[in-house]
Computed example of a mutant assay.
Amino acid sequence: MLLYKQKKNQSAKGNRLLISINVLGSAGPIRFVVGEEELVAAVIDTALKSYAREGRLPVLGSDLNDFLLYCPTSGSDALSPWDMIGSPGARNFLLCKKPKTDVVADDRRSPDAGIARKGNGSWKSWINKSFSLKVSSH
């Protein structure tokens, strides 16, 4: 009777992959091994923890909901957090912070609306403001 030995790169969870994640603004990629059935959300969490453990800059934070993982071969859409990391068939990824969505407030309700509008004056107001500064003599 011949026994079949399981390959080293296969486990009970399936194949394991060495992935490389480039973080936007960081010097180099983060590399680690994951199972191909791992969820994208878990991979983002692992990448953030590894990034922080290595003391890399810029500091990113630890909330995985603030980040998107892109695969260069799958187009411009980010991977869903519920997808498996092995589904795109790639091993190189890009981790980016989600763009902040600012809620546009009505100008009458926003207390900072007047300040923002005031700062967008013309060059004449800047010149007048500059000349109105008092110069102290020695």
Rank of each mutant, 00 (worst) to 15 (best):
P72N: 06
G89Y: 04
F67T: 04
A52D: 14
M1L: 06
K8Q: 10
A105I: 13
K98A: 11
K134E: 12
P99C: 03
D66C: 13
V23E: 06
P88T: 08
A113Q: 13
A90I: 02
L94W: 02
Y51E: 01
G14L: 05
S80G: 03
S50W: 00
V34S: 09
V103Y: 01
N92R: 10
Q6E: 06
L69F: 01
P81Y: 02
C96K: 15
R109F: 06
I19V: 12
A116G: 14
I127R: 06
R109E: 12
G89L: 04
K5Q: 11
D107P: 15
K134M: 08
W123R: 11
D66Y: 02
A113N: 13
E54R: 10
N128L: 09
L57Y: 06
R91T: 15
I127L: 08
F32H: 05
I115T: 12
P111T: 10
D83V: 01
K49E: 05
R117K: 14
W123S: 09
S136R: 08
A52N: 08
G86P: 12
L95S: 07
L48A: 05
N9I: 06
I115N: 12
L68P: 00
K49I: 00
R16C: 05
T73Q: 11
Y51K: 03
L17Y: 07
P29T: 09
L79W: 01
R56P: 02
G114L: 10
N128K: 14
A113M: 07
Y70T: 04
S125A: 13
D66L: 13
A90G: 05
D63V: 07
R16K: 15
S125V: 12
Y51T: 00
P81H: 02
L94Y: 05
V40C: 05
P111A: 07
A42P: 02
S110G: 01
Q6D: 03
Y70E: 03
L18T: 12
Q6F: 06
S11H: 09
R117W: 01
S11W: 07
L39W: 03
L64F: 09
G35N: 15
V43S: 00
I21M: 02
D66R: 14
